[in-house]
């Protein structure tokens, strides 16, 4: 089932704080999102009934944080096997069960389309209300406090971080900054902090540029949040540091590539539309793998690792893959 009318209001609809646990309940179209001490409960209409689904509050907040920080990213951001969003670039679908093969078949799924500003405003309001003081949804579990319990303060600074946009390369005049003033993450204490040596001829001072990408990544204060570090036309290098579990199952609306720079990540790969398992891909340092345009993937990183995510932002790609003009597999051999 789906609602085709686009909800265009940017007004966030919520209740007063609960007398039991202090959290507000939010309405997003016909969806209702509520949290308590341990869980987030999402309700939607289907087959003449109100259907419901529960997630761990921590898992929900980690997923919602990525969806906000990534501006709904490329394609599908599955919070889990039931709930998620699909980016239509200007509009965003929120769905329950629509990309779960069994629920879709049973007709208990629901999708509703929103203007991107409306769903973004609602998700940001949810994070402001549901993220407690001391919990950082970007941080590895061993680096942050608990997400659970009744409402206790907030953590506004932690939830306002986004993907770092870069025009060409960090450190160039007018471009995104390097991270020299940020601390080295505990998991990368052994990563060399030396910089490239640049010797410019007279008249070319400031025109040669290089930096230590590994130093830059060793100082990332977030996990599973790519930052752009090189732009070759529509080809974006988006490396990131990963620890614990990617909080979402990302469903691709284009091919993306992974290059494992350090350590190891294991990827669970499933069918984009149904979630059925397709493969487990173990990537070690130096490995390169494509994530085809017809899958969803979720990664597991036991030790904080460096991953080079490589994206193509050529306009119109989602439509070209969806129409079948482009194969979901990047290379035939």
């Amino acid at each position: 089932m789906s609602s085709t009318a686009v909800a265009s209001t940017t007004t966030v609809v919520s209740t007063d704080p609960s007398n039991e646990n202090g959290y507000r309940t939010f309405k997003l179209g016909k969806f209702e999102l509520a949290r308590d001490e341990y869980f987030v409960t999402i309700r939607w209409p289907a087959k003449g009934q109100t259907r419901s689904h529960q997630m761990s509050a921590e898992a929900f907040l980690r997923a919602c944080m990525r969806d906000v920080a990534w501006n709904f990213f490329y394609g599908w951001v599955n919070f889990d096997h039931v709930i998620g969003t699909r980016n239509l670039y200007g509009q965003v679908d929120m769905y329950a069960g629509s990309f779960n093969g069994v629920m879709k078949e049973a007709g208990v799924d629901y999708t509703e389309r929103f203007d991107a500003g409306h769903i973004m405003a609602t998700f940001k309001a949810i994070l402001r209300d549901w993220v407690n003081e001391g919990f950082d949804p970007f941080a590895a579990p061993v680096e942050t406090g608990t997400a659970f319990g009744t409402k206790q303060g907030d953590n506004i600074a932690a939830i306002q971080r986004t993907r770092i946009a870069t025009q060409r390369m960090p450190g160039l005049p007018g471009d995104s900054p390097l991270r020299d003033d940020m601390p080295i993450n505990r998991a990368f204490a052994d990563v060399s902090q030396d910089e490239p040596e640049i010797v410019a001829e007279p008249g070319f001072e400031g025109q040669l540029h290089a930096f230590s990408l590994f130093k830059y990544l060793s100082r990332s204060d977030v996990t599973w949040n790519p930052s752009v570090t090189a732009v070759c036309k529509a080809s974006l290098a988006c490396p990131t540091t990963e620890e614990y579990i990617l909080p979402v199952f990302h469903g691709n609306d284009r091919v993306e590539w992974f290059i494992q720079l350090s350590d190891e990540i294991v990827w669970d790969v499933g069918d984009k539309n149904t979630g059925s398992p397709r493969a487990r891909v173990t990537m070690k340092a130096g490995d390169v793998a494509a994530m085809p345009a017809d899958i969803r993937h979720q990664g597991y990183s036991r030790k904080r690792s460096m991953l080079y995510v490589w994206e193509n932002v050529t306009p119109g790609l989602p439509q070209r893959y969806e129409s079948g003009e482009l194969s979901p597999y990047p290379v035939e051999f």
Binding site: A279, R280, T282, K284, G286, A290, Y329
Partner: peptide, 24 residues
């Protein structure tokens, strides 16, 4: 000194992942 990863296929073709190792 490199160690190449692996693919455990449930369905589909390992070629779809175009999996290589830069050091190899």
């Amino acid at each position: 000194d490199y160690h190449k990863g692996s693919i455990e296929i449930v369905s589909g073709d390992p070629k779809h992942y175009v999996f290589s190792n830069i050091f190899e």
